[in-house]
Simulated scan of single mutants.
Amino acid sequence: MSSAFSSPLTTLWRNWKTLKLPWRRRWLAGSDLVGNTYWYFRPTLSTPRARRIMQNNPKIPYSDLNISPAWHQWLRHTRPAPPSLAEQQADIQRQIQLKQNALLADARWAAKPSVMDAPRRGNLQLGIGDGEVEGTVGGRWEEGRKTGIGEVKDNERSEGEQRERNSEIEKKIPWAREKRGPGEGYQPQSWTPGIARR
């Protein structure tokens, strides 16, 4: 249970306190990296199962106490043996490596294009006339926005040109057919509040 930085007197004291002598009600199980000590404790000598308690380091304020998961498991009797100092140091290294891996994963995730981003012009070249098919990856996302190849706006096209364009699209891409329904041309009206009746 001794660490590399403890004095010989401290090591001797810890070894003495670790011994489970028959007249002892309390004996040392180990310590963590910040100086908290963990003890086995029996209220009476005839108690068959020893309780487990922690004695905090008096130099650390209560608000800064942080019990590691391994010691927490030991206190809750879900872990039979207390963790060694080497195991605790390896756990600290694992946490540091986990944080670095999380930062790398966040950077990879941020580098990928998001679905919420506006579509970029030229994402998908379909070769359909002068514009792109609406509803595709490279489609226009704003009404009346100029397309990449032809500089003609949708609302400036004549009906004949629009029909020709639609038939050309239907020949090349069958799922791009226009679906005409009763509410296809519906546009919401602006609302202005009136005077409320009393």
Rank of each mutant, 00 (worst) to 15 (best):
residue 1 M to Y: 01
residue 49 R to K: 15
residue 137 V to A: 12
residue 20 K to L: 06
residue 162 Q to M: 12
residue 130 D to L: 10
residue 143 E to I: 08
residue 105 A to E: 12
residue 132 E to Y: 03
residue 166 N to D: 09
residue 179 K to I: 03
residue 21 L to W: 15
residue 62 Y to E: 14
residue 142 E to G: 02
residue 72 H to A: 13
residue 111 A to S: 10
residue 8 P to T: 13
residue 138 G to V: 12
residue 149 I to L: 11
residue 56 N to I: 00
residue 43 P to A: 03
residue 97 Q to C: 04
residue 51 R to V: 05
residue 90 A to Y: 02
residue 24 R to E: 07
residue 63 S to V: 14
residue 28 L to A: 06
residue 160 G to I: 06
residue 194 G to D: 10
residue 47 T to F: 00
residue 88 Q to S: 03
residue 22 P to A: 10
residue 193 P to A: 15
residue 55 Q to G: 09
residue 81 A to L: 08
residue 38 Y to G: 02
residue 65 L to A: 06
residue 29 A to P: 01
residue 10 T to V: 12
residue 31 S to G: 15
residue 134 E to A: 08
residue 40 Y to F: 15
residue 72 H to V: 03
residue 193 P to C: 11
residue 187 Q to K: 15
residue 197 R to S: 05
residue 27 W to D: 05
residue 78 T to D: 01
residue 102 A to I: 11
residue 30 G to Q: 07
residue 109 W to N: 10
residue 139 G to E: 14
residue 194 G to V: 06
residue 2 S to N: 06
residue 83 P to G: 00
residue 142 E to M: 10
residue 32 D to E: 07
residue 30 G to C: 11
residue 49 R to Y: 13
residue 55 Q to R: 13
residue 9 L to D: 15
residue 170 E to M: 01
residue 68 S to N: 15
residue 183 G to Q: 10
residue 192 T to W: 08
residue 188 P to Q: 00
residue 4 A to R: 08
residue 190 S to C: 05
residue 80 P to G: 02
residue 121 R to W: 05
residue 153 K to G: 02
residue 123 N to R: 12
residue 117 D to P: 01
residue 24 R to W: 09
residue 145 R to C: 08
residue 179 K to M: 00
residue 8 P to N: 13
residue 2 S to C: 13
residue 66 N to W: 01
residue 191 W to Q: 12
residue 24 R to V: 05
residue 116 M to Y: 15
residue 16 W to P: 07
residue 12 L to R: 15
residue 197 R to N: 04
residue 110 A to H: 11
residue 174 P to R: 04
residue 97 Q to M: 10
residue 79 R to C: 02
residue 18 T to L: 02
residue 138 G to T: 13
residue 40 Y to Q: 09
residue 169 I to V: 12
residue 67 I to K: 02
residue 185 G to S: 12
residue 188 P to D: 00
residue 107 A to F: 06
residue 163 R to A: 03
residue 15 N to H: 15
residue 129 G to V: 05
residue 179 K to R: 03
residue 7 S to M: 11
residue 107 A to H: 05
residue 69 P to N: 12
residue 124 L to R: 09
residue 69 P to D: 14
residue 120 R to P: 04
residue 92 I to S: 03
residue 180 R to N: 05
residue 107 A to L: 07
residue 91 D to L: 08
residue 34 V to G: 00
residue 124 L to K: 10
residue 17 K to D: 01
residue 51 R to E: 12
residue 28 L to P: 02
residue 67 I to D: 02
residue 123 N to F: 07
residue 178 E to S: 10
residue 104 L to S: 02
residue 101 N to Y: 00
residue 70 A to R: 07
residue 74 W to L: 03
residue 80 P to R: 10
residue 32 D to R: 02
residue 173 I to S: 00
residue 148 G to L: 14
residue 10 T to N: 10
residue 76 R to G: 10
residue 150 G to V: 05
residue 102 A to S: 11
residue 6 S to K: 05
residue 127 G to Y: 05
residue 117 D to K: 02
residue 12 L to H: 14
residue 186 Y to T: 05
residue 61 P to G: 08
residue 30 G to L: 09
residue 61 P to F: 09
residue 50 A to I: 04
residue 158 S to K: 11
residue 79 R to H: 03
residue 6 S to F: 06
residue 111 A to V: 01
